[in-house]
Design a protein around this nucleic acid. Structure first.
Lengths: 207, 207, 207, 207
DNA sequence: AATGAATGAGCTTTCATTCAT
DNA sequence: CATGAATGAAAGCTCATTCAT
């Protein structure tokens, strides 16, 4: 029989911290879980593996979280909140809509490929593993996040006459950005800034 | 405790056929599996659910396939082969590289959103559920498929002076296209042809 | 996980025939079964393996035998009857009890190590895999077979004054003989005749 | 249809302890398994039956052992080590080779018919149910055990001029001894000491 | 808070047996 | 008689979760 060989994982101190995914006991669980969920999938990760990466027994996880699914939910909630805040910071620091769009692209590229990589990927790819009620709880946050994009694209459309609908435009961009998780290597020749520049050109229809 | 509620699924005859995912006993298993794997994930789908959708007992699955993982592999292999053939057909029928690119975009949009939607989505999102050796077996096919894109983009770059590397260009496009699976609705106001036209404009940097 | 690797088996024509374990369709099933039961055990052998060795489909076995267990029963019954007949032949051809004992020893050594090796080993080692009612059916035959030994040993005891009870004596001998199946190699330097001679000496208490 | 009726088994506290087959949770599993493996065979015993005899759930077995096969391996390993130690003790306490041989016979008779009866019988009769790599792991221990016999028989041969090879001699004796498991009853008129005496006479060729 | 043995439901897979063709 | 797809019960094993310590 073919045996599924889970990817070898780093040690916990190689997994970056952000927000409440910090170095507290609780934060260590979230970081380990985010990493494993990204690499092996939510269903493909056991609570024992999470505990083992943290360096505790699996039973101890349940002192911090009611269930495995609550760990997933917490990872997702935290990354949306953290990323939204970063996003709002970024667009608040520039004035033109072109610059705001670039700020959004950069901000999302960093979310997907920087320290929040694990959690952000999990947010995107493991949505269906959430319970319905937790999906509902997060939907408002996700929608607010998306609306920021659509609003800025709307303004740009008014100014530039770009033909496509802001909603579609947003989706093409987010697709391209999300997809970078499947191929972008931090230590390759292309930097995230290069990437952002290219995507901005694509978005604005410049050759 | 929060209970995961799997999505309600169609009956088997609502799930489209293609290639060897036909109406034979074996093909029915593959169609049911492709659908359930897309909706609930590979790990989130049980062999009993597949069997129940086909209308047989779970033990009978193993007459047709050695293991659950072999079902996943077969779905993926079939959709790559089927889609590659379609892709080659499509680019063979037009002569300019601009038209070839449009043919590729349309062809991939249909692969992701048409009759091969279930299988194609599974190919993209459940790659890590494959055993290593099966990943290896499919990699050659995937690479050939990707090279077709890169070659055509290369020619276009030479002709149009587009600044980005064909590899990166390919990735932005495939990201946008793959992402449509998360939002495109067949019965909405936007058709796949509209989508293809917009993506082509984006790819060629036209406003 | 550790995977049990069943011993590689011969082709059917390398497995010797005797009695009704002949070259008829039915006999071929019995020979294949006897061989596999010896090598991999009754529970460790599947009907598919038996059928595959015979060169038919597993469903076809059930035209010849009601169940897998009936195959086991038939193998055992046949080897007892065949071996008993041989045994009676052998002791009928000599007159002294010493010679009769030697005939018994030789006859049993051949049963365990000759053409009936597979079936005889199965008879000895898979008794507990038989259903109770089939055990009961064979017990009369086994007892008759054993009594032949005990009777002859009794006579020898009367003549030679050997101190041990014939029952115990029989058991020591049959143990030594049965055990040969675990170590005797037909193509080694020791022949079955040599073995018989040594065991006879041991039985008669000669140095 | 004929239905296999497994032998009724004792309760766990009737199954004797020795070595690490003690009254710890782990030892209780081993004792239950050894007993059931002897009575119904390895393949004929289910993990649910073992668990039920221990008084736990079947899933709990896998806290103590990785697999059913590892239980078998542990039973076998433990009984070899325990028996070897006993054997060495026994021959160390006497000086003549005749007495050492008698010590070996007694020691092995007790191994096969005393508190280690279940495990020892399993060691002898279920060897082929072990995975290849576990067979390999145990072979060194088995060989050391056998060599003790052969060495002592060699010395005796030199002193007494006994005609047979020590290797063959060892095999006849071990066959007779192993076979006692099929017929010896602790509460019959014959004691293990009587048995040992008779086998020693047989071994030394005295009437 | 942490442990780790235990749970028990549910998983994938096996396999003797049946039966329409 | 032979086939081979299908059955369905039961196998070995997994795993999130609980709880006495």
């Amino acid at each position: 029989m073919l045996v599924k060989v889970p990817q070898q994982v780093k040690t916990l101190d190689k997994i970056p911290s952000f927000g409440c995914l910090d170095d507290s006991p609780r934060g260590r669980v979230l970081r380990a879980a985010a990493h494993l969920f990204r690499v092996n999938g939510y269903e493909g990760t056991t609570v024992r593996e999470i505990a083992s990466l943290v360096g505790i027994q699996s039973g101890s996880l349940f002192h911090h979280f009611k269930s495995k699914e609550e760990i997933l939910f917490t990872v997702m909630k935290e990354v949306i909140e953290y990323t939204s805040a970063k996003q709002n910071d970024a667009i608040g620091q520039v004035s033109s809509y072109r610059e705001k769009l670039k700020a959004l692209i950069i901000s999302e590229l960093y979310a997907i490929n920087g320290v929040t990589c694990d959690a952000m990927t999990v947010l995107v790819f493991e949505w269906s593993a959430l319970s319905r009620s937790h999906q509902h709880d997060l939907l408002a946050l996700r929608t607010a996040y998306e609306n920021t994009w659509v609003n800025i694209l709307q303004k740009l459309q008014e100014q530039t006459g770009y033909v496509q609908s802001p909603q579609a435009w947003r989706k093409y961009l987010v697709g391209s950005i999300a997809w970078t998780v499947t191929w972008f290597k931090k230590d390759g020749s292309l930097t995230l800034e290069d990437l952002a520049e290219q995507l901005l050109l694509m978005a604005l229809g410049k050759k």
